[in-house]
Design a protein around this nucleic acid. Structure first.
Lengths: 237, 237
DNA sequence: TCCTTTATGTCGACC
DNA sequence: GGTCGACGTAAAGGA
């Protein structure tokens, strides 16, 4: 279903029909946009691409930027009306949010029935790093043995919990990118929380594993007595 | 410029022409997607919407989700070729990333010349909270006087730096959302850094301003001796 | 539902 | 270019 420079009525019919039949809808033209909800914003008339997905997502894209200039998350309800403009309204509760797009001119409108049952397979993530360390723990240090992943502490869940050659408790925090002070603080919170949990039965060491570390973060690590081990998220040759 | 169920050659011409003339291009059809760069991923054939922006952005959207399933950031170079499939390739250096979309069927293809010089005006942000406190400092506490914003410390820049009724130094950290332990740690780092900077000439207090606080973060604040003041990002009535 | 963490986060500001 | 922090972050996974 497609329309080139449709009248507001034609465009309204197409969008309404697309909404009814759970189609992917794309409308290109000159519009203004108003949003009110968690924040609020206004956008005066300009040329934009508006996408409506069958899951209730709305995206408003301008000619630049990777991110939509306005949007609604999945699960919203859409309705379309025509007065002197073509108005697409999207609403949700919890939190209450409303997005209104008013087209003064529609260049193209398309509705298409879309199915995509293929799942994305992704490598090079933090989950990958964890799997590699679990399959070869001594890559961290000799004698390291993982005991648990996602072990809970009062400060949150630890990526890898284990013991070293001297049977000290070891907390390993993984980051796939260069780390800043936040990661050092986070690891320190885990170590301190575990020390309290273990009632000082044994000492607790902390190891931060990431490709590299900023200067400020290294200072924090030194101050806290934590270790850093460099590791790239993907092996590659 | 638009095409309904074009041949690969027609679609290729349309996309090539759109790229050449810095137009916004949208292609809807059945394709597979391969990405290799910061991570790497594969996506088998399915129906998707592909958007090419004049700034070099590429977005691949499926029927669900607010985020694109694959993408390239602004500044990438695109090229389009046709063999037995219509292939759109996008590449950039630093970091080296490549995205390839192969269409086995094109349902719609559109290229449109877009201009949007309107800027989005947004309210209810952290910047708003800062302005409100600066215009009425006593909303935090009687006698509070702002001395600087973005004051630099070895731990980073402080949102608002000021003094209280007893001339103690005060560090104010703003968050527009409910805060977790990270914010408490961050504020503590600022306070500790300022104590060192000021050579203990005066005591340094820390105030975290946000709509609300998690239990864990409140514990951390208590431990560090920091204060919390609830404040909504938007006043409203 | 709330809470926490990750992300090919993206984006902007500053150095 | 690197570093840092905000975002109407979104999305996933657990309690």
């Amino acid at each position: 279903m497609t329309a080139y420079e449709p009248s507001h009525e034609q465009a309204c019919d197409l969008v309404a029909s697309g909404l009814e039949n759970s189609m992917l809808i794309s409308v290109l033209g000159r519009c203004r946009v108003d949003y009110d909800g968690r924040a609020s914003s206004t956008l005066d008339a300009g040329d934009r691409l508006v996408v409506l997905k069958p899951d209730g997502t709305v995206l408003v894209h301008t000619e630049e930027g990777q991110q939509p200039v306005n949007w609604q998350p999945p699960g919203c309800s859409q309705e379309v009306t025509v007065t002197d403009t073509l108005e697409i309204r999207s609403h949700r509760d919890t939190p209450s949010e409303e997005l209104t797009v008013s087209f003064e001119f529609v260049a193209h409108a398309v509705a298409y029935d879309v199915t995509d049952d293929q799942n994305l397979s992704l490598q090079g993530t933090e989950a990958d790093m964890r799997e590699r360390i679990l399959s070869d723990p001594e890559m961290l240090e000799d004698g390291f043995e993982p005991r648990a992943t996602e072990r809970e502490t009062p400060a949150g869940a630890v990526d890898i919990y284990g013991t070293d050659a001297d049977d000290n408790a070891v907390v390993v925090e993984l980051k796939r990118r260069r780390v800043g002070p936040d990661a050092a603080s986070q690891l320190n919170r885990y170590v301190e929380a575990l020390k309290r949990d273990l009632h000082a039965e044994k000492s607790v060491r902390g190891i931060l594993v990431a490709p590299s570390v900023t200067e400020r973060a290294q200072h924090l690590l030194d101050k806290y007595g934590l270790a850093f081990i460099p590791l790239q998220p993907v092996t590659d040759s």
